[in-house]
């Protein structure tokens, strides 16, 4: 589905969105799960989307990212499923 295959990360390391720190930038490789994907996609988050982490809330709270002009909060559980790569 919404996966970019045959494209390995330039840094050779695949991270999840939850690994990123505040201010970190990344490009989305793959969204986990099927149903929820559509909500992420409707907010403009899909393979190839570049995003920046605005804040990471403590106690396994949500991760807030900036996509284009908007800020989106993503629950930690979901953020752990989203695979990203750090841009070169």
């Amino acid at each position: 589905m919404l996966t970019r295959r045959n494209e390995s990360s330039p840094t050779g390391e695949v991270l999840t969105l939850a690994c990123l720190k505040t201010g970190g930038k990344a490009r989305v490789l793959d969204l986990g799960g099927a149903g929820i994907n559509r909500r992420l996609v409707s907010l403009g988050i899909g393979p190839g989307t570049e995003l920046e982490v605005v804040s990471v809330h403590p106690f396994r709270g949500p991760v807030v990212v900036r996509v284009d002009g908007a800020q989106v909060a993503i629950g930690r559980g979901l953020a752990e499923k989203i695979k990203v790569e750090e841009p070169v």
Partner: peptide, 9 residues
């Protein structure tokens, strides 16, 4: 449900 929520400015 997993949280996916837009933060308006």
């Amino acid at each position: 449900s997993e949280l996916v929520y837009e933060l308006p400015p």
